[in-house]
């Protein structure tokens, strides 16, 4: 009984939802069945959105717990850093809740969670620049990686190097100044060999996803259950 409610019922839920959502999507029975399926399909997608919202909240709580543990473990040296993370996370959530409160109590003001002024300020001047800076700092690592990758060791690596140079020059105005043919050559590479090269990879991803679905239906895929009994 214990194992049934711990493992078998959640796995059965996965199998049943997967089978129903796939079968009724591909097979048309009649209009009333199709309409009912569309309604429940939309409802199930909404259920997933609602549950995902809770998982994001749990993720935030996990992060708070992690930083509290770090302060406890490392001590005062960690306090300014972990303290900043904890404070900013809590402050953003408080401002979001204030926005939620205003959206219900004073709807005429037009303030919602994402348009709450202090929340917007934190997003614009703290989150947006840090997010884009962290994303773009990868340039330095890619530059270092390309130094190692773009070495003409063998014919394959040479082809990689030539293609990369043509694409980079074709993407910039400098390339057009050196030789006007870089742009059409870049377009040809992107349309013909590049498209053909990624086609088998895309197909492989497709087959992999179908196999994952089948593994879930047949209870072969159990990693989502988390810890084992």
């Amino acid at each position: 009984m214990s194992l049934t409610i711990r493992r078998f019922i959640p796995q059965t839920i996965v199998s049943i939802i997967l089978i129903i959502m796939i079968i009724f999507y591909y097979f048309y029975i009649n209009k009333s069945v199709s309409d009912a399926f569309t309604t429940w399909d939309k409802a199930l997608s909404d259920w997933a959105v609602i549950i995902t919202s809770f998982t994001l909240i749990i993720g935030g709580i996990d992060l708070l717990r992690y930083h509290l543990v770090q302060i406890k473990k490392i001590g005062v040296k960690q306090l300014p850093f972990s303290g900043t993370t904890i404070a900013l996370e809590i402050i953003m959530v408080i401002f979001a809740l204030i926005g939620l409160y205003y959206s219900y109590v004073y709807p005429k003001l037009g303030i919602t969670i994402t348009t709450q002024p202090q929340f917007t300020w934190l997003f614009t001047y703290l989150y947006a620049p840090t997010d884009s800076a962290v994303y773009s700092i990868l340039l330095f690592y890619i530059a270092s990686a390309s130094y190692r990758a773009f070495i003409a060791r063998n014919p394959m690596a040479t082809l990689l190097l030539i293609t990369a140079i043509v694409i980079m020059l074709g993407n910039t105005s400098l390339g057009n100044l050196i030789w006007p043919g870089f742009l059409p050559l870049r377009d040809w590479i992107m349309t013909v060999p590049n498209t053909a090269a990624f086609r088998p990879i895309t197909m492989g991803v497709g087959f992999g996803t179908i196999i994952l679905g089948l593994r879930l239906i047949m209870w072969r895929e159990v990693s989502w259950l988390g810890r084992r009994e």
Binding site: E89, I90, V93
Partner: peptide, 19 residues
């Protein structure tokens, strides 16, 4: 740490918003 804190706060706010 500023990035991690604001990113976590922002994702929780978006979660509350979609909820």
């Amino acid at each position: 740490h500023i990035f991690v804190g604001t990113a976590a706060g922002y994702s929780i706010a978006l979660a509350i918003d979609s909820l």
